[in-house]
Design a protein around this nucleic acid. Structure first.
Lengths: 201, 201
DNA sequence: GTCTATATAGAGATAGAC
DNA sequence: GTCTATCTCTATATAGAC
């Protein structure tokens, strides 16, 4: 029973997840509208038509990709929230997620949902909903960290945690996009440090 | 002499600037890679081939568009800098440029260079240089405003004005992109207000 | 300057053999 | 599951008439 399940997983999931990996990589670099089945085909070593076997349409592919990406990201957020660290450390760990995105690979990848945000007006409703959900989830978690930091005395700032959470999320998405083009990891690191300085008590 | 010049301007520049207007609009909505000569053709009421008369290649069009856009934006920045207002008011006027971008038209336009940033890895060097120049210019002006605000006592914040300028620019670009997708003008307004609160003395 | 017509390449997608 | 072959549509771009 575990064997048959594992076999099924390998034969059906391997190529499939490989396609998703490559697609994600290409979108984080070039955007959805500059990513094609031909690009994936070359990188995976499979024919274009075979990709349609797993993902009948490009929209299917992007939807499945976003579901996988969001689930993974939410897991990382949960880990941060569940840790016994102080709010200050939690926030730093949150910032680390964005820094790692840029510092990985050839240092030319931005946040998947950040890239899609720029192309959002060309995308279908199911995709837009998933990107929006990503914002909301991030902002809710950030708000919790900020709120508990105000209570412990880790943080001190004017205004309310919700507005601050939105500001910080916008900042990280924007800085990740810009740092990728100009400034690199050094820029995002100094931005993070500056943001911490602005809200530390 | 002024008459002939004016005639020449009307006959050669009118259609040309109309094309640039539409192209800018389309890019700020959908991105470069989702904008085509066919789209411009429909909106301007001219055939695709005629656009090639003014802009032989799409790259030519985008380069000329960025030159025009940057020049216009730098003029607005100069106006703000030259005014006798306080640093606090100048910064608010700067923020206003971003708020106006979103609140204009159907409320679905982001910053031209912000959109191009997401697609930057698919663009040629001459275009990348112009987008990067836009960042630098904005950040330099912001740094000046912040510096003079520290001197007058309008502002008080940890860290140096350069890092703060970069943070604020990243914030505005990011928030404009996200607000367009979720939150609208209300979001960008509360982000601006929150940012002001963080650096006011 | 603007048009029609066309070249060429690439996109997403389907049918059917193996 | 992966292939070849093909369809349809759209993209950028050019040639040449008016």
């Amino acid at each position: 029973m575990p064997a048959s399940k594992s076999t099924r997983m390998e034969s059906t999931t391997n190529t499939r997840s490989q396609i998703l990996d490559i697609a994600q990589d290409l979108i984080q670099r070039n955007g959805v509208n500059a990513m094609s089945y031909a690009d994936i085909s070359k990188a995976v070593g499979i024919r274009k038509a075979s990709i349609h076997y797993y993902f009948p349409s490009k929209e299917d592919l992007v939807i499945d990709l976003l579901d996988r990406y969001n689930e993974q990201f939410y897991c990382l957020l949960d880990e941060i929230m569940a840790s016994p660290e102080s709010p200050k450390v939690k926030l730093n760990n949150y910032f680390g997620l964005f820094e790692e995105t840029l510092s990985s690979g050839e240092q030319d990848k931005a946040c998947l949902c950040g890239i899609l945000t720029a192309e959002l007006k060309t995308l279908s409703t199911p995709i837009v909903e998933r990107v929006t959900k990503f914002y909301r989830h991030n902002e809710e978690y950030l708000e919790q960290i900020l709120q508990s930091g105000l209570e412990t005395g880790d943080f001190a700032f004017a205004g309310n945690p919700q507005t601050m959470a939105r500001l910080i999320f916008s900042l990280m998405e924007g800085d990740l996009l810009i740092a990728r083009a100009d400034g690199g990891v050094a820029r995002i690191q100094s931005t993070i440090q500056q943001m911490m300085a602005l809200i530390k008590s």
